[in-house]
Amino acid sequence: MRGLLGFLPWIVYAVIATGDEWRWGAIAGLAIALVLVAVDRRAGKAWDQMVIEASAAIFFACLTVISLVAPHSPLTPYGPALVNVWLAGTAWGSLAIRKPFTLGIARTMAPEEVWRTPQFYRVNAIITTVWAVAFTVAALSLTLVLNVSPHATALVIAVKVLTFAVPAVFTAWYPSFARRRLAAR
């Protein structure tokens, strides 16, 4: 569950950034991301253990600048979708370079002797793919919802919750399922 703490900046942004409050959401997301990165680096964590946190710091730095320079940007209503576009890019990009973002987190929870096994990589590639698909579905769904009905708050919240909860539950469940399946062979 420690790996989910990296999503805190994104969650705080989602809660705060409603309508005109996107500046404060961006600033809060940036502050939390920077604190997480600083605390983790001070604790000796490698960058591959902080992909989501580092990605959040970059995203929220950019979003903070945009929100301060152009507070009435046409991007404002699409903030929830932009978050998921960025997260999808982070997840798909980590898969493209064959370093699924979950690998660094998983290494903190698994014995070192399994880190270089094909099964360990495969489990993390599958988990990262589930997150990437969820972020992509969220980005597309939120863009559609916000374009058709910009005030459909309940639907926006439902999309955000479902597209976070489903991969989070899968992440908690899948490694033990994969171990059982491997042991049964």
Rank of each mutant, 00 (worst) to 15 (best):
Ile11Tyr: 11
Leu146Glu: 12
Thr171Trp: 07
Val69Asp: 15
Ala81Trp: 07
Ala46Cys: 11
Phe7Ile: 06
Leu5Pro: 10
Pro74Asp: 14
Trp22Gln: 05
Glu53Lys: 06
Cys62Val: 10
Thr163Cys: 12
Phe101Tyr: 14
Pro175His: 00
Ala26Asn: 04
Val145Gly: 06
Ala165Phe: 01
Gly6Pro: 04
Asp40Tyr: 02
Leu144Gly: 10
Thr117Val: 02
Pro175Thr: 00
Arg180Met: 14
Ser55Asn: 02
Gly6Leu: 04
Ala134Ser: 12
Leu87Asp: 04
Phe59Ile: 03
Leu5Asp: 09
Phe120Pro: 02
Val148Ala: 11
Val130Tyr: 02
Tyr121Leu: 14
Val85Glu: 05
Val148Trp: 06
Leu146Gly: 11
Pro77Trp: 05
Ala138Trp: 10
Ala43Cys: 13
Thr90Trp: 00
Trp115Tyr: 11
Leu30Asn: 01
Glu113Gln: 14
Ala125Pro: 08
Val161Ser: 07
Leu162Arg: 06
Ala183Arg: 09
Leu144Cys: 14
Ala165Asn: 00
Thr76Asn: 14
Thr163Ala: 03
Ala56Leu: 03
Phe7Gln: 09
Pro71Arg: 09
Asp20Gln: 15
Phe120Cys: 01
Trp92Tyr: 10
Glu112Met: 13
Ala56Met: 05
Ala154Val: 15
Ala28Phe: 02
Lys45Pro: 05
Leu30Ser: 00
His72Asn: 15
Val35Ser: 08
Ala165Gln: 01
Thr136Ala: 06
Arg107Glu: 14
Arg107Ala: 07
Ala28Cys: 02
Val159Lys: 02
Leu34Lys: 04
Lys160Asn: 13
Phe7His: 07
Phe170Arg: 01
Arg122His: 12
Lys99Gly: 11
Ala54His: 11
Leu75Asp: 11
Ala17Asn: 01
Thr163Tyr: 05
Gly19Leu: 03
Gly6Thr: 07
Ile157Asp: 10
Val69Glu: 13
Phe101Ala: 10
Leu87Pro: 07
Glu113Ser: 15
Arg181Met: 12
Val15Gly: 00
Ala158Val: 07
Ala38Met: 07
Glu21Ile: 05
Val123Leu: 08
Trp24Ile: 03
Ala91Asn: 04
Thr143Pro: 05
Ala43Thr: 11
Met109His: 11
Val161His: 10
Arg98Tyr: 13
Leu82Arg: 03
Leu30Trp: 05
Phe164Tyr: 04
Trp22Val: 04
Trp86Gly: 03
Ala81Met: 12
Val156Tyr: 04
Val83Ile: 15
Ala168Cys: 13
Val161Gly: 08
Leu68Ala: 13
Leu5Lys: 13
Val156Glu: 09
Gly29His: 08
Arg180Pro: 06
Val15Leu: 11
Val35Gly: 11
Met1Tyr: 13
Trp22Tyr: 07
Leu75Met: 13
Ala184Trp: 01
Arg179Glu: 15
Leu34His: 07
Ser67Trp: 07
Ala56Val: 05
Ala38Thr: 10
Phe60Thr: 03
Val37Ala: 01
